[in-house]
Design a binder for these strands. Structure first.
Lengths: 150, 150
DNA sequence: AATATTAATGAAAATGATTTTCAATAGCAA
DNA sequence: TTGCTATTGAAAATCATTTTCATTAATATT
């Protein structure tokens, strides 16, 4: 785990950014959950212990982490952006399965292998045909979860 | 073309909705472009000829068309929802390639065949494993277009 | 065609997530 | 310890979208 901590701290310092309490706290929250938290979620989670940290700072910090390539930002269509730590080395590429009723999100890695091959092939084809430099892709499935199906 | 018109008009009537001027105008705009318009885009496009049609109505009409399954709503990450007519019979399933700098969007259908197979397989697997009823999926590629690559 | 019913409309106000502003604070290099 | 300046929190601003509500217009009925 330590290597992961130093990784982002170094990256921060390297860009002339400072290692502050809010940044450490927000990183820790992201680092200790598998959930897809919104800025507000994080704000409330840390507010009891760190009432001094404002929602503005949470937004700013998440933004910074996204720009640094440390965090991924997702939109599941419910009006709140969600943030997820990209654990550089050991995190598997995964996609999302979203319940449109209750908002439940499942990370799945099934079929990812086949998909990676297809995506790579698609990326190459599209890059060539449309002259795009492709940087990322999103695949999401929407539906009703176990409970919401009734 | 006529069959397409009657299709949506019938669907409208069928749900006890009325065929109004704003609805006809907004449908026509969507029906005569391949672009991915936002509510505001549509509002400005029709404003000269129909200054009486308000932005609120554009939003309401688009919403209704989405609920009716006539229109698809997309989020390309620029803070504006985009709307696209689903031309029931002849529209090919397609995905989007989005330039993160200028916002240019390319519809592509390349590799769609392979993808459909994979998606079907994934859907079945996920449905079973996670007990989801999957209704739709989104695949988008993000990158830099020809010009923005420089 | 005239009328009655009620869905649909537009203007203005409200909402709510996110951003910006700005004066005060706190990392960190010297 | 000091000084520089990045970072912060609070409050205000933004801005896409929604809601409210009195008015208008589509359509079924007469």
């Amino acid at each position: 785990m330590h290597h992961r901590h130093s990784y982002w701290k170094d990256k921060l310092k390297g860009s002339g950014c400072r290692l502050t309490l809010p940044r450490r706290v927000i990183f820790e929250v992201l680092n200790s959950t598998t959930k897809h938290l919104s800025a507000e979620d994080i704000y409330f989670m840390i507010h009891k212990k760190y009432p001094g940290i404002g929602l503005t700072t949470v937004y700013r910090t998440l933004d910074m982490m996204v720009r640094m390539g440390l965090v991924d930002k997702f939109d599941f269509g419910d009006g709140h952006s969600r943030y997820e730590l990209l654990e550089a080395q050991d995190k598997q590429h995964h996609h999302h399965l979203i319940c449109t009723k209750c908002g439940k999100v499942v990370d799945y890695t099934d079929f990812i292998k086949e998909e990676i091959a297809l995506v790579k092939q698609t990326e190459e084809g599209l890059s060539k045909k449309y002259n795009f430099k492709i940087n990322s892709h999103v695949t999401q499935f929407y539906g009703l979860c176990d409970k919401c199906k009734k």
